[in-house]
């Protein structure tokens, strides 16, 4: 479901000021709360609307007179929308590097409250970015396709398995198209930093005619139907949310290391309704880091607050380091190397 929308259209007839319009592609748009409420909150996000709606509903109910416009877009389109001046109040994104760039380049505004103090230091940056989920990059496999095989526990296991059973897995391996997906690129660049084995794995996957995807949802879908046997670097939280798939998929978190992506929220500099935006960000933070567990919170809560629970979990660090891989030359170099390894 894809629409081409203009930011001016989104802000409705109310906004006479939105002259400079930037075109960007949206995937979905829902409204939560009373349609004709006096106050409006414009949220742009990379998170699926279905997944997020209950949490939005809680907030709208608490506010009473607030209408939330929740627009879903890919992380790169989100970046374009915000830098193009689309009238959003809050940006929620899984692409930590792009969020960091937004904050670094001055598109966000600082926020401090009792709630922000709940966020551990590693999960916020400059009082501008606040993480409200920690989601693993996981391996999703189809148990049917793995009959008689041992489930790999590390990347080396996986490399060995793919090499030993080339015929079985040819054309049945999936991963992100890192040129297309911001999150896929983030996961890949973090893999490169974490271990040498990533390039070897990519080469092996390249030799197996790996299928490339734009999104985690599609990969999960294809694994569940048995179209592919395994998908690498899938967003584990999305896979875990698909309880409807039963045992047609299995989520594997690698024991050598598992990258943890932090989904972050930022209040935009040009927010029209900064107070509601701040309250909304506080709401997200409380859901993620607060004491009581909230049923509507769609992401797995790590059992321990603050530090990562196990040594294998590697949360991606917020900070200027994330800007490095956004550098045009750096990205160009990385992509060409990746294409070489993937044989594209």
């Amino acid at each position: 479901m894809r629409h081409l929308a203009f930011s001016a259209l989104l802000s409705g007839a109310l906004s006479v000021l939105a002259v400079a319009v930037a075109a960007f592609e949206i995937e979905n748009h829902i409204v939560v709360g009373p349609e004709d409420a006096p106050r409006r909150l414009q949220v742009i996000s990379t998170a699926d609307a279905d997944l997020f709606a209950p949490l939005l509903q809680v907030f709208a109910d608490r506010q009473g007179d607030l209408r939330i416009d929740y627009t879903v877009a890919s992380s790169t389109e989100l970046m374009r929308a915000v830098t193009g001046g689309a009238p959003f109040d809050v940006a929620l994104s899984s692409a930590m590097d792009l969020q960091t760039k937004l904050a670094n380049d001055g598109h966000t505004r600082p926020h401090r409250s009792a709630a922000t103090a709940l966020v551990p230091a590693r999960a916020r940056w400059r009082d501008h970015l606040f993480a409200f989920s920690q989601e693993p990059a996981a391996l999703v496999i189809s148990p049917a396709a793995f009959q008689g095989l041992e489930v790999p526990r590390t990347r080396l296991d996986l490399i060995r398995l793919l090499r030993d059973h080339e015929d079985r897995f040819r054309g049945r391996v999936g991963t992100y198209d890192v040129a297309q997906s911001g999150l896929g690129y983030l996961f890949a660049t973090q893999d490169v930093r974490a271990s040498e084995s990533y390039w070897r794995l990519t080469e092996v996957m390249g030799s197996l005619e790996t299928r490339l995807y734009c999104c985690s949802g599609d990969m999960i879908e294809d694994v569940s139907t048995g179209r592919i046997a395994l998908a690498y670097n899938v967003l584990g939280s999305y896979a875990a949310a698909r309880t409807d798939l039963g045992d047609r998929i299995e989520i594997v978190e690698f024991q050598d290391y598992t990258t943890l992506m932090l989904r972050t929220a930022a209040i935009l500099r040009d927010a029209r309704n900064p107070d509601a935006a701040a309250a909304f960000v506080d709401h997200l933070i409380r859901a993620a880091w607060g004491a009581g567990e909230m049923e509507e919170y769609p992401f797995p809560r790590l059992p321990e607050q603050g530090e990562a629970v196990s040594a294998a979990l590697r949360p991606i660090r917020l900070g200027p380091g994330l800007l490095v891989h956004l550098d045009a030359l750096k990205r160009q170099g990385f992509l060409s190397e990746w294409r070489d390894a993937m044989r594209r």
């Binding site: 930093r193 660090r317 900070g319 200027p320 380091g321 490095v324 891989h325 030359l329 750096k330």
Partner: peptide, 9 residues
């Protein structure tokens, strides 16, 4: 140029 990660981190 190959921008080193550490340069900014």
């Amino acid at each position: 140029v190959d921008l080193p990660y550490a340069a900014l981190s």
